[in-house]
Design a protein around this nucleic acid. Structure first.
Length: 508
RNA sequence: GCCGCCAUCGUCUAGUGGCUAGGACGGCAGGCUUUCAAUCUGCCAACGGGAGUUCGAUUCUCCCUGGCGGCGCCA
């Protein structure tokens, strides 16, 4: 850990700085996670800052989404906005829109020291220039048209109603960066042109705002996505002009879509909220995201947040981008679902059922909407337990368990047919089941007993499927489901017999 | 176009100057099983290309190719 002197171990300060222009993106969440883990590892501080300098695109609604979902994931910050109340931290507000006084000081300082100038070019003029440069094969950049305007020219522009923007006089030099993940990097700033840094004295643009805030908040490690690599030398130039120390940089590989382009909306669900709604567990998402670009160097692959806090290291972060693989996420989510206590799983599944199968009456009591039966938590738990090893996403419980909440099942009579058996044979076997089950006492109505008595009958056949398949279909109306004994037990004797009768009628 | 970054199975990845290049997801085949799932067993599957360095390169260097990112009065 040569980039981290021992005496600084307790002073690590990192941040995640999302802009509230959309819901929490999976890429942002992963960058947040890596920052969080790095901070935890070094007993450092993890800061959340809201980058809402663009009032056009920012919205409190998205800020709320970002905050709520970070909390849900368990990526908690030490300093930053609280969910429901205003909060001013030790380094000022954590929302850029509330930090104008701070920015003003520095922008004035830059201007007074001659680093900045007003540029009055219009967007159209800039665009025309850009096109021309591109057609000549030059890098599109601002070449300093307004750098040395006379007082008269400035007056004239102002009279024309031009508002102007503050640009930074970019010096020509080679910037060398030592990136923790990528090693030595070099940039030639003469290719940049003069960058726009502020709309006016109190509203900095991104590059300047970041530099000022990171300095003010004493951020010493900047861990962010690789897409920010080209911004880094620009920010360093600004730091140098302001006399700020340079933080250490670590640029993380990007999360890619199946086409290997940066993961974006067109690839499907990208917001944490979407995954949450579909029934992905935070543990699975965290584990999965951590392994996208990081690995422990061993064959282990199941990691809790606590494990990650112990094991994570920037040194083991990959350089190349990682394709987001939904199947692997599904597998991992299924793994965590199976590992979870059934009680807890039931609690998590109930909201999905409440959407259409059941309604909540009071604590622990629910009503099946279609049959109007009153059931309790335990009943639901019994149902959920049948699907625990079959679920990949919590939302699947709706579809999978549907037949428990129906008055009547709808299915094709042909579905009752096992292999090449005939209707009459199926009818005969269903009648046998009916008779056997009817003779069972209520006290004997439990899965082992049901299985025992039916198995005795099924053994007489050349193939157990001749008994079990039609019975299972009679109870579920499905070609795939848990075993009939367990379903019968939960359904109860009366409903079970009724469903068998119904099936018999179908094949008559 | 310019600048930059990256390069091991389809995907996530381990790894080494000499190994049958390892694991996981997925796929395929099989066991268990009425079905599905879970689970177990097995199989398929990779070092982008060319030079160099070297006794020997997947590994080190260079070039090429390819992929990606960036080039806003967005962040």
């Amino acid at each position: 850990m040569d980039h981290l002197p021992l005496h600084q171990k307790d002073s690590v300060r990192v941040r995640i700085a999302p802009s509230p222009t959309g819901p929490l993106h999976i890429g942002t969440a992963r960058v947040a996670l890596f920052n969080y883990l790095f901070a935890r590892q070094h007993q450092g501080t993890f800061v959340l800052r809201i980058e809402d300098t663009d009032p056009e695109r920012s919205s409190p609604k998205w800020e709320r989404d970002i905050i709520e979902n970070l909390k849900w994931l368990g990526i908690l910050w030490d300093e930053g906005p609280a969910l429901n109340k205003d909060y001013i931290g030790p380094y000022g507000p954590y929302r850029q829109s509330e930090r104008k006084e701070i920015y003003k000081r520095y922008i004035k300082k830059l201007f007074d020291n001659g680093f900045l100038y007003w540029c009055y070019c219009t967007k159209e003029e800039l665009e025309a220039q850009r096109q021309e440069q591109i057609s000549r094969g030059e890098p599109p950049r601002y070449t300093g048209h307004c750098r040395n305007l006379t007082k008269e020219e400035i007056e004239r522009y102002k009279k024309e109603g031009r508002k102007g923007i503050l640009r930074f006089k970019v010096p020509s030099k080679i910037i060398r960066i030592q990136d923790i993940i990528r090693g030595k990097l070099e940039f030639d700033t003469s290719l940049f042109g003069d960058i726009a840094v502020a709309r006016d004295f109190s509203t900095p643009l991104y590059n300047l705002a970041v530099v000022i805030d990171d300095y003010e908040m004493k951020i010493n490690y900047v861990i962010r996505g690789e897409d920010h690599l080209p911004n880094t030398p620009k920010q360093i130039l600004l730091q140098e002009a302001l006399g700020f120390p340079r933080p250490k940089y670590a640029h993380l590989p990007l999360i890619l879509g199946p086409d290997r382009a940066k993961l974006s909306k067109r690839h499907g669900a990208v917001s944490i909220g979407d995954y949450r709604k579909e029934g992905y567990l935070p543990e699975a998402l965290i584990n999965f995201m951590a392994l996208l670009g990081w690995n422990p160097g061993t064959n282990e692959e199941i990691f809790s947040m606590k494990d990650l806090e112990k094991r994570f290291s920037l040194e083991r972060v990959q350089k190349s981008g990682a394709v987001f693989n939904r199947q692997r996420l599904d597998w991992m989510n299924g793994y965590y679902i199976r590992k979870m206590p059934t009680e807890q799983l039931t609690e998590k599944c109930i909201p999905y059922l409440i959407e259409d199968q059941i309604s909540k009456i009071k604590d622990q009591k629910y009503k099946i909407k279609e049959t109007r039966e009153i059931i309790d938590f335990n009943y639901l738990k019994n149902i959920i337990s049948l699907f625990q090893e079959r679920l990949k996403r919590l939302s699947e419980i709706r579809e999978l368990s549907d037949f428990f909440f129906k008055e009547e099942l709808e299915y094709e009579p042909d579905l009752l047919l096992w292999k090449n058996s005939s209707y009459s044979e199926i009818q005969k076997n269903l009648k046998k089941c009916y008779k056997i089950l009817k003779n069972l006492k209520e006290t004997e109505w439990q899965r082992e007993k049901i299985k025992e008595v039916l198995l005795k009958e099924a053994e007489k056949e050349s193939d157990r499927g001749k008994i079990f398949w039609p019975l299972r279909v009679a109870l579920t109306g499905r070609k795939a489901s848990p075993p009939p004994f367990e379903i019968a037990e939960i359904l109860g004797k009366e409903k079970t017999l009724k469903r068998i009768e119904e099936a018999i009628r179908l094949v008559s």
